[in-house]
Design a protein around this nucleic acid. Structure first.
Length: 221
DNA sequence: ACCCAGGGTCATA
DNA sequence: TATGACCATGGG
């Protein structure tokens, strides 16, 4: 088990190994928000299928999604799984955008106001809200996901039982409130997990069932 | 056939 | 506060 001294060291190692990730992959801010909802507990590959469906149906705007019947929307979202739930959540997000004048008008609000408003939208939790704030609104908010928690725990930087906001402020303290670094760090963590454990169903060293998150430059021996 | 994925909500204790 | 069920497709 490799142990690291600080979060900056982990960030630096990941950066050296993988380089810039150019997140979030999307053609518009709205597409980022849609993707953030669709990717909940879902592999990104499946989300891409659903996004393609929405584009081909020419419905990738808040107004057009709201004008699309529920069952039709569900069918377009089918490849991303949980499609009935996500159709409902996507509608809630679109309604919120329309009610608040869209991205441009919302962008005048403070980051905290944005976060609170997003959290009040049905289907938007802390991680989804922060992903939207960081990648669509480009505000310095770090996105804490399960990978982050697991990786920081593995390398001995946290205990593992910390709450979301605790981890978020921990990263912010060490990296400094920087949108670019928050963007890259989160993307690098996700990319690292994807790449490092693609063909490792079970790790010998840590005996974790499926994908393990070693720091870079360590193999499964 | 099982496990998980770029989570969140809701019911229960 | 803290688990557990549920959503549901697609790839390993």
């Amino acid at each position: 088990m490799i142990r690291l001294v600080c979060i900056n060291e982990l960030y630096q190692l990941l950066w050296e190994e993988y380089g810039p990730q150019h997140w979030w992959p999307a053609q518009s801010n709205f597409e980022i928000m849609v993707g953030a909802v669709l990717t909940q507990n879902t592999a990104w590959r499946n989300v891409e299928h659903a996004l393609t469906n929405l584009k081909q149906a020419r419905v990738l705007t808040p107004e057009r999604i709201l004008a699309t019947p529920q069952h039709e929307l569900s069918e377009l979202l089918r490849p991303s799984g949980c499609y009935n739930v996500k159709a409902h959540r996507l509608r809630a997000l679109c309604q919120w955008l329309v009610d608040n004048g869209g991205h441009a008008y919302l962008n005048c609000r403070s980051t905290r106001e944005l976060r609170d408003a997003l959290l009040s939208v049905h289907g938007v939790g802390e991680e989804t809200a922060d992903a939207i704030i960081l990648y669509a609104f480009e505000r310095p908010v770090f996105v804490v996901d399960a990978y982050t928690k697991r990786l920081l725990s593995r390398v001995g930087l946290i205990q593992g039982k910390e709450k979301y906001l605790t981890l978020q402020s921990l990263v912010a303290e060490q990296l400094g409130p920087n949108t670019v670094d928050f963007n890259e760090f989160h993307a690098l963590i996700v990319e690292h997990v994807k790449r490092s454990c693609q063909k490792v169903p079970r790790c010998r060293e840590c005996q974790i069932r499926h994908r393990c998150s070693y720091p870079v430059k360590t193999t499964q021996a």
